[in-house]
Amino acid sequence: MRLTIDHRTTYAFTAPQGRIVQLLRMTPGDTHDQTVADWHITVDCDSRMTQHRDGFGNATTMLYCEGAIERIELTVSGEVVTSSSSGVLHGAAELLPPRFFLRTTPTTVADAAIAEFAEQESGGRDIAALHRLNGAVRARFADDSGRPAKGRTAAEAFALDALTPRDMAQVFVAAARAMGAPARYVSGYCDLAGDNRPTPHGWAEAYVEDCGWIAFDPWLGLSPEEHHVRVAIALDAAGAAPVAGSRLGDGAERLEVNVTVQSDD
């Protein structure tokens, strides 16, 4: 499947900024079932960009802009060819061993409620148990199609009725780790998520002994097939966020994100 991505991020500031430095996790890598055919990151103001690879193996871009900046727009566009993987990840750059992803972070702590949910719904930590967990997260929450609340933890999300894909994925990650399965957050794109989305898509990967890393999309209630473009992984959503930014200047910022993914089907 050929997926075409158009991802626009606009920051508008109430006062001009002297400097902006951003770390972008916006570049997908090739895997066995994902080939990046074309990819561009462009910025609408005078800037310098450098390419890096972080400790998780993610391709990152440093963006440096000098003021006075009242508004900045980042446009990510590209084409990725995917093939059906049955959710199994092959050929990704792995710098850290699976057990590392048993680590918890402040936003992915499994509180008693999540741990109990994980135990009741999964009953083990094999691949079938993880699929049951994935289905149970889907069944438990209604959809929230807005922008995910910044800094919301898995435990906070678990107490709500409706969740964004990101928060469902964080609940899955916390629950999978509570079951003893290494798990991580994935940010990327999915053409099933609908047009003009206010954020990229988010799902999870869990490690299963003898199988490797398997992707689970709790929002979909299924393992990703060829509809997903995997961009960045981390221990939690914040670690895989498309933009980590800093600015030098007063005033408030207004963020607008518009993501559209089209498939050739």
Binding site: D54, G55, F56, L95, L96, R99, F100, R103
Partner: peptide
């Protein structure tokens, strides 16, 4: 596990 589950092991500087 002494390394990978240790918060002092910083994935940010791996590599």
């Amino acid at each position: 596990d002494l390394i990978f589950l240790n918060p002092q092991f910083r994935p940010e500087v791996v590599g």
